[in-house]
Simulated scan of single mutants.
Amino acid sequence: MDERDWLILQTLYAQKNITHAAQALYISQPALTNRLKQMEKEFGVQIVTRGRRGIQFTPQGEYLAKCADDMVHRMQRIKENVLNMESNMSGTLRLGVSTFFTDYKLPGILKLFKEEYPNIEFKVTTEWSSHITHLIYNQDVHVGFVKGDYGWKDQKRLLFKETICIASKDKIDLAHLPDMPRIDYRTDQNLKMVVDHWWAENYAKPPLISIDVDKAGTCKNMVANGLGYAILPSMILDDLEDLHKIELKNAAGEPIIRKSWMFFHEESLQLNIVKAFVEFIERIDLMSIH
Rank of each mutant, 00 (worst) to 15 (best):
116 E>P: 01
20 H>E: 15
253 G>I: 01
192 K>F: 06
143 V>A: 02
89 M>W: 03
17 N>L: 04
100 F>R: 02
265 H>I: 04
106 L>I: 12
250 N>I: 06
46 Q>D: 15
284 I>E: 04
258 R>H: 14
110 L>H: 03
165 C>W: 01
272 N>W: 01
31 A>V: 12
52 R>N: 11
12 L>F: 08
263 F>S: 00
28 S>C: 02
185 Y>V: 01
44 G>A: 08
125 T>Q: 08
16 K>R: 14
91 G>E: 01
11 T>K: 09
11 T>W: 05
72 V>R: 04
73 H>M: 13
109 I>F: 05
247 E>S: 11
79 K>N: 10
90 S>K: 13
56 Q>I: 02
61 G>Y: 03
250 N>G: 12
139 Q>K: 13
70 D>A: 13
17 N>R: 04
201 E>R: 12
32 L>S: 08
265 H>D: 05
48 V>G: 08
73 H>L: 14
13 Y>I: 02
21 A>S: 15
193 M>A: 11
94 R>A: 14
77 R>D: 00
178 P>S: 08
12 L>A: 06
98 S>R: 09
85 M>S: 14
37 K>T: 12
268 S>D: 13
14 A>F: 08
51 G>K: 08
46 Q>N: 15
37 K>P: 02
285 D>R: 06
225 N>E: 09
177 L>W: 05
94 R>H: 15
279 E>P: 01
35 R>S: 07
89 M>G: 00
135 L>R: 09
94 R>V: 10
132 I>V: 12
158 L>C: 07
263 F>Y: 14
155 Q>M: 13
168 S>T: 14
52 R>D: 12
226 G>Y: 05
17 N>C: 04
32 L>M: 13
4 R>N: 15
36 L>F: 07
190 N>Q: 08
30 P>I: 10
26 Y>W: 10
236 I>N: 01
22 A>W: 07
176 H>I: 01
286 L>P: 11
136 I>M: 07
259 K>M: 05
226 G>K: 06
147 K>P: 04
180 M>K: 14
67 C>H: 09
102 T>C: 10
60 Q>A: 14
2 D>L: 13
3 E>G: 11
67 C>D: 09
11 T>Y: 08
184 D>F: 03
185 Y>E: 01
78 I>G: 02
151 G>M: 03
124 V>H: 03
195 V>R: 05
87 S>K: 13
41 K>I: 01
7 L>I: 12
183 I>N: 08
29 Q>N: 11
280 F>D: 07
176 H>F: 05
162 E>W: 10
240 L>H: 10
101 F>P: 01
244 H>F: 13
35 R>Q: 04
